[in-house]
Simulated scan of single mutants.
Amino acid sequence: MTDTTQATAAASGASATEAFRAKQRSEAAVSQERVSTLATEVITAVHDVIRRHKVTYAEYDALKAWLIGVGQDGEWPLFLDVWIEHVVEEVANENRQGSKGTIEGPYYVPESPRHEAEATLPMRADEPGTPLLFQGQVRAVDGTPLAGAHVEMWHADDDGLYSQYAPNLPKWNLRGTVVADAQGNFRIHTIQPAPYQIPTDGSCGKLIAAAGWHAWRPAHLHVKVSAPGHQLITTQLYFQGGSHVEDDIAQAVKPELILDPKPATSGKGNEVTYDFVLDPVEV
């Protein structure tokens, strides 16, 4: 990877923080009782860790310095999405009957260019990587095809970099929203992404180094699928046999989300079929 394509923790952290602040979020009021319960239990859990492990003042000061550094680096979205979000997603979607979801991650950008049911994601003329045809159908849990469903996809390139979070990539590179046809079918032409390390030159990297962990995520496709009257599903799809599928730092891999691409019938690259089943909106 050349210096001109390096993505620094500070730059990607700032972009992730800015994107989160711009994101439309539920502002539903939370009761004081709920806040008190959650905050008290989190703080009590920290107290328990301190007592059980006899945390020293030197370790306490190191924690304070690290927490300050996470904020200064703009890496709170990265930290929370890598180490915390997978449990929030697990709890939030535990009653779904349809397709499995997983974490959104910090690199989502809304309002990507819209395309017809068969489309090629925006990419450079000489985009490196193995061509991939990702196709399937969007259905309701009762099997009804969902005409006009939106299949929103984004992913890293062959260097493990995301557009809008790394320099010198076109704005919408490998990002797009495909509108399914009358039978809920879609065909998306893209390239297979590469595994990548989360940025390690910032505070999250310091934690990884201090703990002796690895910083790798397996190659994956990010997808959001939606249709009127149905619950949005946010997921990531991985590749069978890929590096770090078994030890993803974000702990986001589920067996149902592992793809097994085969050589494409066109003779160019690989192809895979994966259907999405959406739950009805809860009333």
Rank of each mutant, 00 (worst) to 15 (best):
V179H: 05
F134V: 10
A250D: 00
F134Q: 01
E246P: 00
W172G: 02
P145W: 06
T200A: 07
K224D: 14
G136C: 00
G202S: 13
S203P: 12
P255V: 01
F134A: 04
Q197N: 11
A219M: 03
L161P: 02
I258Q: 02
P218K: 07
L221R: 04
A219T: 05
P145H: 06
A166N: 12
F186Y: 11
G148C: 05
W154M: 14
G229Q: 07
I188H: 00
D248W: 09
W154C: 14
L169A: 04
G143L: 14
Q183M: 13
L146G: 08
A180H: 05
A182H: 12
L259M: 01
P145V: 07
L237S: 05
L257C: 02
V245Q: 06
P195W: 11
G136W: 00
G176E: 11
P255L: 02
Q236A: 11
Y196G: 09
F186T: 05
K206S: 15
E256Q: 08
K254H: 09
K171T: 09
V245S: 03
A210S: 09
Y238L: 03
E246Y: 06
T144K: 14
P255S: 02
A147R: 10
L259T: 01
G143N: 14
G229Y: 06
L207C: 07
E246F: 05
Q197G: 07
G205N: 04
Y238I: 03
G242E: 02
V141W: 13
N173E: 14
L259P: 00
D260V: 01
G148P: 07
A180V: 09
D158W: 14
T234A: 13
I208N: 00
G212A: 01
C204R: 04
Y238W: 09
Q197L: 08
I258V: 10
W154K: 13
A149Q: 01
L221T: 08
L232N: 14
I188C: 01
G202C: 11
P228N: 07
Y165Q: 03
A147W: 10
L221M: 07
G241V: 01
S243W: 12
D247A: 06
G229K: 06
G205T: 06
V138D: 02
Y165S: 03
D248R: 04
Q164S: 10
